[in-house]
């Protein structure tokens, strides 16, 4: 009993004075997932975290905090103590918040722990669409302006970036853009014929393609994907896409800026190692995601490049609310 009281008392003292970094973690860590349960970010984070917990020797309690395209979770973590006990588990969207007018903050208020993996975009169509590849689709759109329905997931979503990319490379695209609240519902609608074409992440559509419920038009990458070797890369239709590709959404773990370096390092090691766990890599590979497991300066550089490329692409396509310039985001190559 005495030991118990002593321990409880020391726990109280520890809580008050802030734990030392070499002991980190001395209490459970909160992982705030930016998206809802069952979504791809949720799935990825819930499958990598148990491995990271093992390496870290601590507990990470995962919580979904949804709303306002992930901005609620981002603000919550940014406002919590920079002690490494609150992690943000997010995707690429926050890098577009500023130009989309969705918020004042993005990942620049955070230190990346690990950028876990990157996805590849793919253009898929309803099986009954009157075209079978990218070139055929472009011809059909040119002949039938304003008839083809593209799925979208709101400004700044993957489909809007891909559509912006097509417009930058090929010129104006006269299609109807039907908004859905996520690629899951949009791909469902695609199979039901409510939309004709959907730019989606390969992982979300791969099973549908394998089953023949939707047909792939082109992979948005510089080369064909191992998972779908028969689907041509979009660069084989138009080389100008090389300017923008490879591009893709990503998943990453972040802590608020100002977190002690050794804590970040401990976390980074844990998550990077966890991302290399064969169970996890196999899982990600089966869905066409490429493991990155980068952190530190490399991750910072990746984020900067991604933000520059994507915000200016959207800006040039006229899809932004604010210019990237307003936030000091330089045009790529400048």
């Amino acid at each position: 009993m005495k030991r118990f009281i002593l321990g409880a008392a020391s726990a109280l003292v520890l809580g008050a004075s802030g734990a030392l970094a070499q002991d980190y973690p001395t209490k459970e860590i909160q992982g705030i997932i930016q998206w809802g349960a069952g979504g791809s970010t949720d799935t990825v984070m819930r499958s990598v975290t148990p491995h990271a917990e093992e390496i870290l020797g601590g507990t990470v309690v995962l919580q979904n905090m949804t709303g306002a395209v992930g901005a609620i979770a981002l603000n919550h973590v940014a406002d919590s103590a920079a002690d490494g006990y609150t992690l943000l588990m997010g995707a690429e969207n926050p890098l577009l918040y500023k130009v989309m007018g969705l918020g004042e903050r993005d990942y620049s208020a955070f230190t990346p722990v690990s950028i876990l993996a990157r996805g590849t975009p793919i253009l898929v169509a309803n099986t009954e669409a009157p075209f079978d590849d990218y070139a055929g689709m472009m011809d059909y759109i040119a002949e039938n302006p304003g008839e083809v329905r593209f799925g979208a997931t709101g400004p700044g979503g993957l489909p809007s970036v891909i559509t912006g990319m097509i417009e930058s490379v090929e010129g104006g695209l006269d299609v109807i853009s039907v908004p859905y609240d996520g690629d899951g519902p949009a791909l469902t609608a695609l199979q039901g014929g409510a939309i004709d074409v959907m730019p989606a992440v390969l992982g979300a559509s791969i099973e549908g393609i394998r089953a023949g419920n939707m047909k792939p038009l082109a992979v948005f990458d510089t080369q064909a994907n191992d998972k779908l070797p028969d689907v041509p890369a979009v660069t084989s239709f138009n080389e100008d896409y090389n300017t923008y590709l490879p591009w893709g959404p990503f998943f990453g773990v972040f802590v608020p800026e100002g977190t002690p370096e050794d804590v970040v390092e401990k976390l980074s090691n844990a998550y990077n190692e966890a991302a290399q766990n064969p169970e996890f890599t196999e899982l990600m590979d089966s869905r066409g995601y490429s493991i990155m497991a980068i952190s530190g300066d490399e991750a910072e550089q990746f984020l900067t490049d991604w933000q520059q490329g994507t915000t200016w692409l959207l800006q040039d396509a006229g899809l932004t609310k604010n210019s990237p310039e307003d936030f000091g985001i330089a045009r790529p190559g400048e």
């Binding site: 979504g39 899951g184 549908g208 394998r210 089953a211 419920n213």
Partner: peptide
């Protein structure tokens, strides 16, 4: 089809995925 009928089945799809299955029309 691998399409969730509601929020709970969406999570169960995630669970199948984590356990190494490929929930989808081919399941």
């Amino acid at each position: 089809l691998g399409i969730p009928g509601d929020a709970v089945t969406a999570i169960i799809i995630g669970a199948l995925f984590i356990h190494g299955l490929n929930p989808g029309p081919m399941l």
